[in-house]
Write a protein that binds this DNA or RNA. Structure first.
Lengths: 203, 203
DNA sequence: GCTTGACATATCCGCGCTTTGTGTAAAGAT
DNA sequence: ATCTTTACACAAAGCGCGGATATGTCAAGC
């Protein structure tokens, strides 16, 4: 009992979350979060409103869960980009960051999230009250980097990950130049540190 | 006529701005930006409402000008901290960033700015619509660094400055650990790049 | 050049009322 | 068992309505 139900129950739970997130995603393609009700999401997923509350607690927590779920999609891509350059740390960071900035900048959902400014929007989830997302993304990115360079010092990896996350959020919310130029500049900035922290781990 | 009026006129203009900003600052110590009217600011500065509009155009532009003016105060301190460590680039960055994070975190005005979340607040000026502030701060910080290390490559300095600005804003709006730890981590991260870009310029 | 007074327009405020959404609980269904 | 249905209390949001207040722009006056 202590290790979390049966595999079946865990699977249905995951299925439920996936379905509900898909429904929310579709809704968000049409109107901002502030105009979407929990009932909308529930019916869109073919699920009762209660099930939503049972799984997520309240509207705000669902919002956080959704944002993190979406971030997971990006992280999967980032992970792939990183693992494609396991022996060239700098190239890995450049590719990952550029891909992230490019896809995020083009993503319809992200555009709506960012344009959804006022009180009821989802923007605060990644900016003002964004600590949970920052921490989650840092943890995840730390794991990704450690997967690629297991011999790198953990403290260095965490520092690198958190800074990348914060810079990534900053550049997504207020873009400067192109994704390519931005990624290039950041990679150049972090390059020397990366060489030191990860570069020596090349076998 | 093309180089900007007489020195006297320029001085009175600067005096006006200073006085008005002081008034706004005092008001912001008591209630959020959304509850402060242009008339409040004007009368607080002993100036007519029209003068405000003549100088700043509209409420929004005044908000931006004020935020940048406040940022200037921090930049002055940052400049001092940098110039105290002209021959130790890493120490300069550490000291400047730590001082910035500490004072910003304690500053009553900043606290009010950050807690002023909703639509009418000033937070969007540094986050969502923060590009002007980022650009201004980057330009200013670039100048500061170039003052300390004139031989450093300009592109490197600009890259460093912009990243420091964005990380600074990120850590102020969503603080993680203590100012000291944060500054230490960031300095360690940027250290190798700084050694490369600025370190060789030590005479 | 700053101030004053005036102005059109927009926004906000209070008020009462209605509608809708949130969050919780228990009964019913499969 | 777990999801759904139905129900409910309560908080918000919408609305129409003045009236008040704020914004932004004039022209006159000193």
């Amino acid at each position: 009992m202590q290790n979390g139900r049966t595999p079946y129950q865990e699977a249905t739970r995951e299925l439920l979350r996936q379905t509900v997130f898909d429904a929310a995603r579709e809704q968000l393609g049409q109107r901002p979060w502030s105009e979407i009700t929990m009932a909308d999401v529930a019916s869109g997923a073919g699920v009762s409103r209660q099930t939503l509350y049972n799984e997520f607690g309240n509207r705000n927590e669902f919002g956080f869960a959704f944002v993190i779920h979406e971030a997971e999609r990006f992280m999967d891509d980032v992970e792939a980009a990183v693992l494609e350059h396991r022996n060239e740390p700098r190239a890995a960071v450049t590719a990952a960051l550029e891909h992230f900035l490019r896809t995020a900048g083009e993503d319809q959902l992200i555009r709506i999230l960012l344009s959804d400014d006022g009180t009821g929007g989802m923007l605060p989830f990644v900016t003002t009250q964004g600590l949970p997302v920052v921490q989650w993304a840092t943890t995840r990115l730390t794991a990704v980097i450690e997967e690629g360079w297991p011999e790198a010092p953990e403290a260095d990896v965490k520092t690198l990950a958190e800074s990348l996350v914060r810079l990534g959020i900053s550049y997504v919310t207020t873009p400067g130049e192109s994704a390519e130029d931005t990624a290039k500049a950041v990679a150049e900035l972090l390059g020397p540190f990366i060489d030191k922290a990860l570069g020596s781990a090349v076998d």
